[in-house]
Design a protein around this nucleic acid. Structure first.
Lengths: 338, 338
DNA sequence: CTGAAAGCGCTTACAG
DNA sequence: CTGAAAGCGCTTACAG
């Protein structure tokens, strides 16, 4: 059975399609009796406007694409939630795309085969350089998330990873820790995110007057608890003896917690530990994990604001914004006593 | 600037729109020289077919809606990932909807204001009864997920929660446990999921010849580690002394781990513990959590198979299928020695 | 192997 | 306050 069209409603109510459209959109100047007649026809026929016809005629889809590497990573799942929520609040819906952390899919995300699907794209790349980002284009406004450098032409919202990492080091230093290790940078080539966090780590050490010792940087296990556990385990077994651990993310921190525990090292007494992202589990494991938390709702809000400005026609240079972060102090690296 | 239309390509290549369409769709019988000319025109103009026009003409959107309660719950995030993956493999994309666990939004999901957005819906309700599910309709095929009872008219894919819970009890019994508590049923009214798991719990106890003691059922804290921790903590402090804990889900298990640890109870020595869902963290906390795992990829695959059969025209009674589960045996409730 | 034309369901200047 | 008609970008019977 065909579905009910606007023209069916018009015929049923004995008016033109324009009038039905006026009623559907709550246009003011419709004679009350006409309006009522149309509304009854809509109800009787069970008419539901077709989004495609509307979109074709208006040029707007009221859909946004969100592309993140992998929803199984709790940080991205929570990000998707925040963005979906903010989008709904603005009358938009979300098309989900997982780029699965491969350059090919990231390129595909950007240069979409089909047009007309969405009005804009929110995209967190992990592979594409700003050059490639600038090149491929799906012909809709884009706002970039995350730490990869963005082309001048695109908007970009992120947290200040350098400042946050330095902040974490200072927190650990205030706890009396002096041999602060870094866990989770990808090897051999660290991601842009890890690079920034390493820079902040170094900056923090220097600000605290602590030596920078490459031996304290344990690579491997980004966003992967099992690998982080193995990497840290191997380093500990080889003689590494940190009194604090700045983990690249909470998943790595979870793995670290395990590696330390298996070796009888207590957290935070023997080794203080921090994570990054503030995923659910960080609050609930024992000890709970002190971690860097980006303000996800704010991030989502800014990203959408910028995107909508472009959808509305702004076509200037890319805006590059930082949004705030905070350190969620928990058991694994408590506040300094005094 | 307007975007390039199919008719622009046709004019540029000096052919009709039909011929361009034939080339775009890889239709066999096009003279090679014509095909090449068209392809060059497509490349030169940067033509990208518009999904809306196509969809309006064919009646297919090649989009599916996925509605789950909340993406911040790792189980649903992982489910969304599996379904997105399976959808992509079938040439479909996913429109994401979070029903946020409220009856109003669940109803809205089902009776969508606009038509023409998606070809089908995969929906995990937690509130709507089968009566309401049958009533509201967005006019597209629906496949239901989860434990709420489904109307006869709709397809439904789920795991056998009763059997799985009984299986868990038997596992704990084989470990020598006799006072097996249940943690995480919602109070005062348990969700359908919790009801089924409680039924299985009871069935398992009976199968093992253990008494069924209502005092061993601790309510509160479903899908919420903090509340589960508080609920179990209060019960323990009030004198509950189980030697095993069947938790409704992994999040509750995480909370339980914390409550037990804070009271000096060792897992699994003093209290064995199991979860449900097999979220990432279950593998990586210490002790790692023995948990029930649904075969998410299989579930996603079957849900899509059923949905596509309906999209292709099947209009018979609802198919109600079970998909398999397995117990992931880890440290918190290891295999029985023998 | 290719073309002209109608149709998918809506919106919106333009008239009146 | 309302209508007739063109147009959004595609596909597809129907002819040839």
């Amino acid at each position: 059975m065909r579905s009910v069209r606007l023209s069916d409603v018009a015929r049923h109510a004995g008016v033109s399609t324009k009038t039905v459209s006026n009623v559907v959109h709550g246009y003011q100047h419709v004679r009350p009796s006409t309006r009522e007649r149309v509304q009854r026809a809509i109800a009787e026929l069970g008419y539901r406007p077709d989004a495609r016809g509307r979109s074709l005629a208006t040029g707007r889809t009221h859909m946004l694409a969100l592309a993140v590497p992998d929803l199984r990573n709790p940080y991205f799942a929570e990000l998707a939630h925040s963005i979906a929520e903010a989008a709904i609040a603005r009358g938009y819906r979300l098309l989900l795309e997982e780029s699965m952390g491969t350059p090919e899919v990231e390129r595909a995300v950007l240069s979409a085969e089909e047009a007309g699907l969405v009005d804009g794209l929110i995209f967190q790349p992990v592979w594409l350089t700003s050059g490639e980002l600038a090149q491929h284009s799906r012909g809709v406004p884009v706002v970039l998330l995350g730490e990869n450098s963005a082309p001048l032409s695109m908007d970009h919202v992120r947290t200040d990873n350098v400042a946050a990492a330095a902040h974490v080091v200072e927190h650990l230093h205030a706890l009396g820790r002096r041999r602060i290790a870094f866990l989770g940078a990808e090897a051999p080539v660290p991601s842009q995110t890890s690079k920034l966090r390493l820079m902040g780590y170094q900056k923090g050490l220097e600000a605290c007057g602590l030596p920078v010792d490459p031996a304290l940087v344990v690579t491997g296990g980004a966003a992967d608890a099992a690998r982080a556990c193995a990497a840290l385990g191997a380093a500990l077994d080889a003689g590494l003896a940190p009194d604090a651990l700045l983990c690249r993310d909470d998943l790595a921190a979870l793995g670290a917690l395990r590696a330390l525990g298996e070796r009888g090292l207590r957290v935070p007494e023997d080794v203080a530990l921090t994570g990054w992202d503030d995923i659910e589990a960080a609050t609930h494991v024992r000890p709970s994990i002190t971690t860097v938390r980006a303000d996800a709702a704010h991030l989502a809000g800014r990203a959408l604001d910028l995107l909508f400005e472009r959808i509305e026609g702004y076509d200037g240079l890319g805006r590059h914004e930082f949004i705030g972060h905070s350190l969620q102090v928990r058991e694994s690296a408590p506040a300094a006593k005094r």
